[in-house]
Simulated scan of single mutants.
Amino acid sequence: MKRLVRTFAVVTTVSLMSVISVLAADTGMGMSPDNSTNKDQCLLVAQTCKDSVDSLQQRIDRLHREISKGNSVYTNEELRSLEFQLKDAISTMEVLTRGGA
């Protein structure tokens, strides 16, 4: 009887964990790419999001796009953070393409 209860508990736990991961993937971890007025939380707080694997050029493009939304979407502090990330990404791109210095 104990084995049956233990097996049931394990199966229930695994089922709940997989349902939670599927729901998290469906919601996009708080990011809606279709709506241009939403903040890109993946860029702002460095969350691991389902579509956050970008090339360096794609990241630069995303940062340009988000910065262009301006104060209608982001606070001044958030814009400074995005601009800092953009400068960092651009300098990394330059180092990679020019070989340093």
Rank of each mutant, 00 (worst) to 15 (best):
Q57H: 08
S72T: 14
S72V: 11
Q57L: 03
E94W: 03
Q85Y: 02
L4F: 13
E66N: 08
R59F: 01
F8Q: 14
P33W: 01
T7D: 10
D40L: 00
S36R: 11
L79G: 02
K87M: 09
S91H: 08
N38Q: 11
S32N: 14
V10W: 06
L16F: 07
E83L: 07
V10A: 15
R98F: 05
D88E: 14
T7M: 12
T12S: 12
S68M: 07
L23S: 12
N38I: 03
S18T: 15
V45Q: 08
V45M: 05
M1K: 15
S81T: 14
S21L: 09
V10D: 08
T7H: 10
R65G: 07
S15R: 04
E83S: 12
V19L: 11
D26L: 15
V11R: 13
R98I: 03
G28S: 08
R98A: 07
S52W: 01
S91Q: 13
V53I: 05
E94V: 02
E77H: 06
K39C: 02
L4E: 07
T92P: 01
D51A: 06
L44E: 06
S18L: 12
M29P: 06
S68N: 11
I60H: 01
S15N: 02
E66R: 05
K39Y: 03
N38T: 05
V73P: 00
L63F: 03
E94M: 05
N71P: 08
V11S: 05
S18P: 03
T48S: 14
N71C: 07
A24N: 12
S72K: 10
M31E: 13
D34W: 06
F8G: 03
A24Q: 13
M1E: 05
G30I: 00
V73Q: 01
K50Q: 09
R59H: 06
D54C: 01
P33L: 06
R65W: 07
N35K: 06
T48Y: 03
I20E: 13
V5M: 13
N76D: 12
P33E: 04
L79D: 07
T75N: 04
Q58L: 00
N38S: 13
T12E: 09
M29D: 11
L96M: 12
V11D: 02
C42K: 00
Q47R: 09
C42S: 10
R62S: 03
M1A: 15
M93E: 04
S81I: 14
S18F: 10
E94D: 10
N76R: 11
A46G: 12
V14F: 13
Q57M: 05
L56R: 00
R62F: 01
T27A: 15
K50A: 04
V95M: 10
C42V: 09
A46D: 09
